[in-house]
Design a protein around this nucleic acid. Sequence first.
DNA 1: CCAAAAGTGTTGTCGATACACCCATGT
DNA 2: ACATGGGTGTATCGACAACACTTTTGG
Lengths: 239, 239
Amino acid sequence: MKKTLINHESGELIEARVMSSITIDCVIFGFEAGSLEILLVKHGQGIRKGEWGLPGGWIKEQEGLDEAAHRLLRELTGLDNIYLEQLKAFGEPDRFPVGRVITIGYNALIKREDYNVKAGFTASEAKWYKINEIPDLIYDHNEILEYSLKRLRRRVRKAPIGFNLLPEKFTLLQLMQLYEEILGVEMDKPNFRRKILRMKLLVDLNEKQKDVSHRAAKLYRFDDNIYKRLTEKGFSFEF
Amino acid sequence: MKKTLINHESGELIEARVMSSITIDCVIFGFEAGSLEILLVKHGQGIRKGEWGLPGGWIKEQEGLDEAAHRLLRELTGLDNIYLEQLKAFGEPDRFPVGRVITIGYNALIKREDYNVKAGFTASEAKWYKINEIPDLIYDHNEILEYSLKRLRRRVRKAPIGFNLLPEKFTLLQLMQLYEEILGVEMDKPNFRRKILRMKLLVDLNEKQKDVSHRAAKLYRFDDNIYKRLTEKGFSFEF
DNA sequence: CCAAAAGTGTTGTCGATACACCCATGT
DNA sequence: ACATGGGTGTATCGACAACACTTTTGG
């Protein structure tokens, strides 16, 4: 099946062989000023023009699923090497108004410091929404989002993926506040410190914050290789 | 797209509108004589005729995904009300030899006591394989199976789903052996007893085993309503 | 009596929690 | 001086692992 598509990077119209009846939708998470946020786009066509939805698109005929999701994210955010995780397929027969379309949901975690709004993005808009200020979305996107959030909350406790939402260098308090925000709980600072440090998962950068109006905190970095080494030894991340 | 399909229940050929390029594949788990097993079917057509694979099929145009999976399971095993859980979509461009087909994987847990081999099953065969005696499978089915097993091992520790593999009435030792087999670990009987009983999740049936050549054990039953009530109170199943 | 599994008791260790308290830095 | 967050110390409690032990039943 040939479709006319928009290349979000260049803005030009292209024709491509894509799979009919299957799409990808991404829930893109960011963490800014203590709030967990999601990137939504305004739909530029069809009956529900002007309403907000999850960014997504078609899968090319010669493209794997993760590959397609990475491409869509790159087109939208300009970012490569994004942490990406497939959720599952959503396929109620009536989820899409015109014809039967199954969509595959993805969770993406990005570092807001790296992100820039893509300039000529589809003549539509893209905007960050706080997690508890999400509007009504098109199709079944609210349902996908709900599932996505549940999954994020579960995953963030069992695997060190939260770091993908923080800057490269971060303080322990920032990390704790990220967990508090995602999980919706309050934590005890001293206990959190000890717990995460005991894991020996973080690299102490021997650097400190600057220009803060209180005692400067140490900066840490997450190292995936250390995590892998620990995992092989039987270590299991738990929060 | 119209396809000629076989109705596994009646054996007759039917024409049905199905979605092209999307299938469902099920990993069906059973527990028998202390071993975790998977139900495989021998493929009756195509280049890889005679090789084993996961049972699966097409999705009808007016059918949801879970609904389709339930139908396929019913056609194959004659069972309804099976515990079913979607895994994810598998869609490498070259996973299927003729054309691009994406498949959605499912995990199914069934009680072997209820299961009967379906008589006229597609003129092909269906057979239970022990988890560590799985042959080479068609397409990417080994990969799907591997993912499925990982998921089962994770899920069984975090949610009370193991009961779906046991008879309605079971002893604590049976339950423990189920966990030992799925997780591949040895457990301490006294400690396991206390842990599971402390959860107050099981109903003591005030019945005992019969015709066993040792002290008869109490029989228990899992009650989903009790679990729901506990969950609402903040209880979280953990093994 | 023995074998085999059911079931109870006891003890030591470790991590989670709660909370008191001191330290450093900018205004 | 004081507000703000950084960071340490400590006592309590409960879960869990290890393992010794008693009980019941059939052969």
